[in-house]
Amino acid sequence: MPIKSYLFPGTKSALIKFKLAIYLWLIIIILALVAVAPLNHLVRANLSHLYLGQPAFIPFELHLIEIFIAHQDFFQPYLYLLLILFSLTAIIFIFLDAALFGRMITSERKITFSDFLADGSRYFWSFFLSTLLYLPIFILFFLLSRFLAFPLNIWAGKSVTEWPVIISSNLKLLLFILLWTASKLIFDLIRIIIIKDQKTVLLALRQAWFFLSKHFFSLWGLYLLVGLIFVLISIIFLFIGRLISAEHLFGLVLMIILAQAYIVFRLFIRMVFIGFENRYYEKNRI
């Protein structure tokens, strides 16, 4: 049973090393604070003394759009800031992934921040190279998704109703997501091999290719299963979020807790992916 053999141990290892999710969460909070600070200032400077009245003459959300329109000059430099920040984040995440993979794959149970940083430094360069290697793979899969979507385009292009257009555009999105998960699986495996077998990036790619030629569908099936669980839980989160009214302080606090729990959940799921992929590779490598 792949679920019992790989998914449960993978989840267990993620639970044991849950502290890693907290490290990542704190780092993301810092990055997000930097990104949101100017926007927060704009909103507070313009709306912190707004009198809404009961009932509000205009919903608060429209006031928000109004001040964005009134301060259009703010957005160009702000978008540059976001661009720089997101570019830096891409680099930072390579480091964080190196740290995360390093700590998830190690047999040590104890997690410390210094070990986390040490793994990040140790594997950063290999992970950076693997990212460069991943880019053409990603583009290849993207082009493949466009190619496979061709019949859908023809079907939608010839339709006399709107249904084929909606169905095909959503199928195309689904197709892209499926192919992206497949490419991501290869990418994860390369990184696991880099750490586990201490291989260079190209050798890791070669080994991952051989491994997946035998195990691709069962591993991908597990990957999609976890992905599906993630989507379902995300929908439940969103649904609960819709029910919470932030009109009162209690609701606001509850909403913030729920939202941050969701971020931690996303990070945890990332660890589950690494956990079961590592377990699968460990059990089935030659």
Partner: peptide, 13 residues
């Protein structure tokens, strides 16, 4: 000010 609206919004962002 507009009570919880601003923290709700900024937290949303």
């Amino acid at each position: 000010g507009p009570r919880q609206k601003i923290p709700t919004t900024t937290h949303g962002f």
